[in-house]
Amino acid sequence: MLTAPPLTPAAVMSHPAVLNAREEQALASASRLYALRRRINADSAATDVPTVYVVLYALTDPGVSPREHLAEPQGLALAHGYLVRARFCDIADGIRSGWAKAQRAIAEGHAHGIVASSCTAVGGSDQQYELELHWLARHRAALWLVRPEPAL
Rank of each mutant, 00 (worst) to 15 (best):
S117D: 10
I114V: 14
T47W: 07
L133K: 00
A58M: 03
A121S: 11
V146W: 05
S14W: 03
M13C: 06
T51G: 04
A4Y: 02
R39S: 12
Q127A: 14
Y34T: 12
L78G: 13
L33Y: 07
L83R: 15
L70R: 06
G75E: 07
A102I: 05
A105N: 05
A30W: 15
R32Y: 06
D90A: 01
R96M: 03
V115N: 01
R67I: 11
A10K: 13
G109Q: 02
E108F: 03
A11C: 09
V18E: 15
A116H: 01
P50G: 05
T120N: 05
I95Q: 13
E72V: 02
H80N: 12
I114F: 06
A137K: 14
R67F: 08
V64H: 11
L83H: 14
V122N: 00
R147K: 09
S31C: 13
L152E: 08
T47K: 15
E23Y: 01
P16N: 04
H15Q: 13
S65V: 00
E24V: 06
N41G: 11
T47L: 15
R140N: 08
L33E: 04
H15M: 10
G113T: 02
A137W: 02
V52Q: 12
L2G: 11
Y57Q: 00
L59Y: 03
R138H: 12
H134N: 14
H139E: 10
S97T: 12
I91H: 03
R140M: 00
M13K: 11
V55D: 13
L59H: 07
V12N: 09
P73G: 03
P6D: 07
Y82I: 06
L7D: 09
S29P: 01
Y82G: 08
H134L: 12
W135S: 13
A92Q: 12
L36C: 08
A100T: 06
E24L: 11
E72A: 14
T8I: 07
E132Y: 05
G109W: 02
T120A: 09
A10L: 13
P50I: 03
Q25V: 07
P5H: 12
R104I: 02
D93Q: 11
S118R: 00
H80G: 01
V115T: 00
S29E: 15
A35C: 00
H112Y: 06
H139V: 03
R138C: 10
V12S: 14
